[in-house]
Every structure is written in C-alpha cells, then in structure tokens.
Design a protein around this nucleic acid. Structure first.
Lengths: 179, 179
DNA sequence: TAAAAACATGTAATTAATTACATGTTTTTC
DNA sequence: GAAAAACATGTAATTAATTACATGTTTTTA
C-alpha cells in the first residue's frame, strides 16, 4: 500500500504551527531543515494550503510588519485546528514509509559484481551520504548540546536521531560493497 | 534538493524491460514487489507511460494471446531505448533519496518522553516494521537460496539486501525507545 | 462447477507536487 | 554605499501520482 495522499501536508502544518505561530516562509524553511528528511513541500504548495486551512477554520493569521513595510502573516492554530492535530497524532499510522531512491534503482539494473560501473557509482553515493551524515551530526550537536535541550523538544530529537541512524546505515551499507 | 521528477519512471521501465520483455501488468507487479521498496507506480501510471515511450521510439510491443482470446502486449526495448537506459545508469545520481514517513512526522509533534501516546505509537510501528522485515527476509531466502542465484541477479540482491538492512535499522531504532 | 483470485488493459477525475514566473523588502557582507 | 543574500508572499503552468471507473479473460480453489 505504501502511502496515499489524504492531504497529510495540512496535518504537518498544523503540527508546526502548534509549536509556535509562524509565517509561510518559516514553514518552508522547516521543510528544508528539521522536517525535510521525512516530508517535502515547497513554498508554492504551502501558501495555497495555508489559505485553504484558514478557510476551513483550522488556522488564522495576524498581519505584522517588519521594518518599514514588509508585511508578514503569522499563522496560528484555532481550537478546531488543535483538535484536528490531536486526532491525527492519535490515530494509527498503518502505512509504511514511501521512499524514492533513484540510485538504488540504478543498482537494480547492474547485473554482476564485476560491472565496471558499480564501484564508481558506490563511491559517488558514499561521498554524498557521508556529507549528509556529517551535516546531520553537526546539526544534532548544535541543536541538542545537552540533555535539557533534548527534553525540551523530544520529538525533534527523535526524528533527528532517526535520520542520523538511517544515514549511518546507508553509508555502512555502501562501504560493505566498496573495494 | 532531494528529488525532482524528470520522468524517472521511464528509465525504471526501461531497466525492467531490459531484463526481459514484459507486459504492463508484469511491470505493475514489479513495482509492488522487488522495486516497490524504492519506487512506486500504479498501473494507471504505467500504461499511459508505455504508450508515450512507444511513441518516442524507446520501446515496442508484440501482441500475444493467452488461452482463447486474452490479448497481452509484450513490451521490449528498441536499440534507442537501450542506449537511453545505459546513459541513465552511467550518469551521476547527485540527489539524495526522498522519504515520506507519516509516523516519524507524528513523533516530531510529541513534546516529551513521558507523553502517554508515545509508547503505543512506537509499539504499533514496531509491529508493522517487524512484519515487513520478516517478509523481506523471507523473500531473500526464496529468491536467493545460494550464491549462484546472487551472481545471476546481483543488482536485485543488492537492493533487497539494502531494504532488509534499512528495515532492520528501523526496528532496532524503535526498540531503542520502547519500554 | 461455481466462485474467487489473479491476469490483463485501459481511461477519467482528482489531487499532489514541481518548476517557473513575478514582485518587493530587509539584512548582511564586501 | 552597492551588491548579494536572505526574508517574504504569492500565482501559473506543467507534470506526477492517486483513486476511481470500466471491462473482460484465465486460473485456481473450494
């Protein structure tokens, strides 16, 4: 089954806004950073979704001005939106995660271990994933320097930890086949 | 950046058809089984794509009949299609894999380790991923009973091995937080 | 032998997602 | 003080993907 798409984006946005009121721009940044390992969305998908969600009554916004005239919209949850978020978190998640990995697919079409393309391909990916792993570890050090920081954003710690472990596995797996 | 969508589906189909001529139905099965861990596509996406690819001259089909009148279309690569496949495999894969994982996102919104929802959520996912892990291991036993089988479809072995390791990691990670 | 499951192929409607277009402000860096 | 980068918000066009609609055959199972 893998994963359908029953507007999961809205729930993720609800969750993000529950942490603190944010602008669409802030949300887009979250999808590039802390959330991006597990869900992706561009600003062109986020802004229209915010409008839809406001129309449905799950969020509202407050206009603020930065500097002389830069208009921002700080979105926050309504009680209805909060209820919706709580319901979503509590309901079962019976679907496995969906991964799209072009590199692994290419490997599938390599027929023998002796194929001369194999080792360069593995090397290239190893470099890519080592860099990503280093980046994630760096982020963990910055964001969670001590136990107090972990306790204050436990969910965030969990998913960063998961992402690091996953990336470590990817690197280890690649190295298993490198010569 | 993660992953754009420059019609990667076509390349995967080329790779599958390069192994042996197949019908659209066969391809759809491949996306449910050996490929499904790393790319997903429904038959409603596959059949139109086959038409497009035939129009572009990358594949052709041969009509065959099973039994009395069941018409099948066996698709196979043209030389142009084969060239396209080789070029795709050889070119770099600079993008990281994209994962969508609703469960991990829910975790992100759990604020403390003491949240009463956390443990049941972890239990539910552990059950799901243990089952998936068992299923994948079973498949490895069936499909790759000996070294000869591995050598004959090395790429297939690689990705199944990767999928098993990934799933094992997921289970281990969940268990790390279970009490 | 009847029913169910699997095989087989398509299209239509809708939703999701990407890429490109479009504009302007504020802050930081050189 | 100029330029670049980051902040900020949108829409339009296109492509990708899902879900639903639609139909028929063959094989397996009870």
């Amino acid at each position: 089954m893998i994963i359908g798409q029953r507007n999961r984006l809205q729930y993720i946005i609800l969750g993000l806004l529950n942490q603190r009121p944010q602008t669409g721009y802030d949300l887009a940044k979250a999808f590039e950073n802390e959330i991006g390992e597990f869900w992706q969305a561009q600003h062109s998908q986020i802004y229209p979704m915010l409008k839809r969600m406001e129309t449905s009554g799950d969020i509202t916004h407050e206009d603020t001005v930065t500097g002389e005239k830069l208009a921002k919209k700080q979105y926050s949850l309504t009680p209805a939106g909060h209820d919706k978020l709580v319901a979503w978190v509590s309901e079962p998640s019976p679907e496995l995660s969906a991964t799209k990995d072009e590199f692994i697919l290419k490997l599938y079409f390599i027929k023998t271990a002796a194929d001369p393309r194999l080792q360069p391909m593995l090397q290239e990916q190893a470099a890519l994933h080592r860099a990503q792993l280093a980046h994630l570890k760096q982020r963990r050090e910055t964001v969670f320097p001590d136990q107090a920081a972990i306790n204050q954003a436990y969910g965030h710690y969990l998913i960063l930890d998961h992402a690091i472990g996953r990336e470590q596995y990817y690197v280890d797996w690649l190295e298993k086949f490198l010569r």
